Amino acid sequence: MSDDPYSVLGVAKDSSDAEIKKAYRKIAKECHPDLKPGDAEAEAKFKAAAAAYDLLKDPETRKRYDNGEIDASGQERPQQQYYRDYAEAAGNPYRGHSTEQDDMSDIFAEFMRGRGGYGQRTQEFHAPGHNLNYSLQISFLDAVFGASQKLTLPDGNRIEVKIPAGITTGQTIRLRGKGAPGYGEGPTGDALVTISVADHPVFDRQGDDIHITLPISIDEAVLGGKVPAPTIDGGVNVSVPAGTSSGKTLRLRGKGVKKRGASERGDQLIELTVTMPDKVDDELKQFMETWRETHSYDPRKGMPS
């Protein structure tokens, strides 16, 4: 499977945001693990599509990928120019050279000689290491409940990233001392991990609340009753009032995301939508024709014609 996010989603590089979103949702509906449990191939395809969509849905991230600033996983390309730029900003007399010296001690030795004059004793130099920036995509539920994930660094080493519950896309986790090493006795820099949260095919987060759309049948809408509904904690049964129309919203208190700095959680909002059967048979058609003769009503009363 290609790593290129456009290829993963099966879209052209100049596709619109709407086309990219449509392609992702198609794959999600076909391959989500909740819909195809145990299908490793479908799960792998879904995960790849989720990662690709997460990278391309943000215009800034998409632009940076197209410009080659980040790779398909969203991680920064190696910052090869850092030490040269640092020396240039400090007044290095050798700025403008396009080649990097392998031995960093030589660079700073030249820097100090340039400031102190030829033949003077080189001063000892200490500088903190620079921060390293990374991107990490996590699942919707890991963002809600918190988790621990491994982040692979460019050198192949892996570091553990503890995800706090309730984190959102764009927030950054600082891993102190996990950046570039300092020069001399300078401290090591930090790793800054920017989080992106993958979309979920069922749940939609709005602040601390979770929203879902729940289809109900005609008889459930007319007669009411208990119907099963998913939550981030697992399945529950909810009470649908008799005579329910599409758009009615049920609230499950405390079934949302944990609020920051508090013990309580948000709510889950369930928007009901009345769904017709796949096929309207003769019996249902005849019943509705008879019913309409004696019970007709105008649901659009009061609207302009």
Rank of each mutant, 00 (worst) to 15 (best):
K36A: 12
S239Q: 14
D54I: 02
Y65N: 08
P59W: 10
P154I: 07
L9Q: 04
S148D: 11
C31E: 09
Y297K: 10
E124C: 00
E88I: 08
I216T: 03
S196R: 15
G247T: 05
V202P: 02
M303Y: 06
L153N: 07
V236N: 03
T290G: 10
K226W: 09
Y134K: 03
H200E: 03
Q286V: 06
S98P: 01
S245E: 12
A262R: 14
Y297S: 09
M1L: 11
I232R: 10
Y53A: 01
N131S: 15
Q101T: 06
E271F: 00
G96L: 07
A191P: 01
W291C: 01
N237Y: 07
R300E: 07
P128E: 13
S139T: 15
Y86F: 13
D71Y: 06
L192N: 08
Y183H: 13
F140W: 09
E185R: 12
G119Y: 08
H295D: 10
I270V: 13
V274L: 10
Y6R: 01
G156C: 09
K248Y: 12
E185H: 09
R113K: 14
R300D: 11
G247F: 09
I216D: 00
T168L: 09
G189C: 10
V227G: 04
L175P: 02
L153A: 07
S246Q: 09
M303S: 03
P33H: 05
A191S: 14
Y183E: 09
N67C: 03
F145W: 11
K57D: 08
M112A: 10
S148H: 08
T231S: 15
R115M: 13
A262N: 03
V144C: 12
F46W: 15
L214D: 04
Y94R: 11
V11F: 05
L35G: 05
Y82G: 00
